[in-house]
């Protein structure tokens, strides 16, 4: 059975990485996937990206984790925590050679939508883009978090034991 590709021509992207060659790789892949050059902007840091977002409204940001000034996680947190920012709910795809669970967890807790472990491949990047396009998640707002729901699949008919910390006061508030 043929798996059909998504038509990315109308989407606008922001590519954020301090390494010029890395930005070039991502932009090459995007262009080959059908994204016109006019629909791509780039920034060398999270700080520059935040400035760019004042005028440019991308549909998706592809952001490196390790950058000087403002890294990818702080960029995501800054964006998600600004209630007035028009791009607050923009999908953020993070790229990182660090695949440790604590890094992935930090990214998730900062509101990152998807995480791609470097070295990237054409298919690994496409899969994550397709995920944010075809299977968007609901957003969750709590006093301490704003971002995509960390639970990808919510089964409303779930009847099993409830194990989330909020369901277990003894665990949520350890004495």
């Amino acid at each position: 059975m043929i798996r059909r590709a998504a038509d990315l021509r109308s989407l606008r992207f922001l590519v954020v990485d301090d390494v010029e060659f890395s930005r070039k790789i991502v932009k090459t892949v995007l262009r080959a996937l059908g994204v016109p050059s006019d629909n791509m902007r780039e920034a060398e840091s999270g700080t520059e990206a935040l400035v760019l977002l004042v005028h440019y409204r991308p549909d998706i940001a592809i952001v490196d984790y390790m950058m000087p000034q403002l890294d990818g996680i702080r960029f995501a947190r800054t964006l998600r925590q600004d209630p007035s920012h028009p791009c607050r709910m923009m999908p953020i795809v993070m790229l990182s050679a660090y695949s440790k669970a604590r890094v992935v967890a930090s990214a998730r807790d900062a509101g990152v939508t998807e995480f791609v472990v470097k070295p990237i491949s054409v298919s690994s990047l496409y899969e994550k883009l397709e995920e944010v396009i075809l299977h968007p998640r609901q957003f969750v707002e709590t006093p301490t978090f704003f971002g995509p729901d960390r639970h990808r699949h919510r089964d409303r008919d779930y009847g099993g034991p409830r194990r989330r910390s909020a369901d277990m006061p003894a665990l949520a508030d350890p004495v």
């Binding site: 059909r4 590709a5 396009i133 609901q138």
Partner: peptide, 19 residues
């Protein structure tokens, strides 16, 4: 909870081209 937005799905429909 804020319901998911399907704006990108509408903006990037599946093509007839093989992935």
């Amino acid at each position: 909870f804020i319901p998911p937005s399907y704006r990108l799905k509408a903006k990037a429909p599946l093509t007839g081209e093989d992935l």
